[in-house]
């Protein structure tokens, strides 16, 4: 079980959080033209890389804030956690 430092609450156990996927994915702007391929990539395509991964986590059983975690998908090492806008 990972230990994740919520930027608002501090270090807590993984079972208080839920995973929210790749943080580098940007939702296309509303109402803007977008090709089928770009939309499809946004909805379905994820990198699934090995190594440093910037991802979103949600402190569901805590402050209910979404935040970013830089984690190694190979070793689970967490390099840093930041607020979404940082």
């Amino acid at each position: 079980m990972l230990e994740i430092k919520c930027p608002y609450c501090g270090k807590r156990s993984q079972n208080e959080f839920s995973y929210g996927g790749d943080a580098s994915v940007k939702r296309p702007e509303l109402g803007k033209e977008i090709s089928d391929k770009d939309w499809d990539d946004f909805v379905y395509l994820r990198k699934n890389l090995r190594g440093k991964h910037s991802e979103l986590w949600h402190h569901v059983a805590g402050c209910r804030q979404w935040f970013k975690v830089l984690r190694s998908t190979a070793t689970h090492e967490i390099f840093k956690t930041t607020k979404v806008n940082e």
């Binding site: 979103l56 949600h58 979404w66 979404v84 806008n85």
Partner: peptide
């Protein structure tokens, strides 16, 4: 639904 709303407010449409 609550998590969904929080996601869009905190991450997408800040």
């Amino acid at each position: 639904v609550l998590s969904h709303l929080e996601y869009y407010l905190q991450v997408v449409w800040t």
